[in-house]
Amino acid sequence: MATAPAETLAPGEIAKPNTAWIWKTFFVLVGITAVEFVFVFLMKAGTLRNSIFIVLTIFKAFFIVAEFMHLKHETKGLIWTILVPFSLLIWLLVALITEGAYVGEALQNMFS
């Protein structure tokens, strides 16, 4: 996957298409999506299944951002500039989901 971009970046005459890494990434994405469907139908819903989905989603996000959006091949500074705010968002998500569970519980036990 990482082999192609360096030479395709060079401008000049019409070169031969260098697309092997693109199709490789595509099949990884399709494969992960297929695995997600296996889990939807063969596993009971619960925290474990949800965790598996979230990990697989982050894998997919990695391949889209790193390969298709080319972030893996940018400078370190740019990579961190994008990743740090993003990881703070994931923290926000986890924090507010926990908060939501607490709010639901508090509302249910309001009068007892």
Binding site: P85, L96, G100, Q108
Partner: peptide
């Protein structure tokens, strides 16, 4: 795109909070 990600993250975070609030 980063700022757009903030908007979508706000939506999905809201979804997570509201969903976990419900039975």
């Amino acid at each position: 795109l980063l700022s757009d990600a903030f908007t979508f993250a706000a939506f999905l975070t809201t979804y997570g909070l509201i969903r976990h609030k419900h039975a």
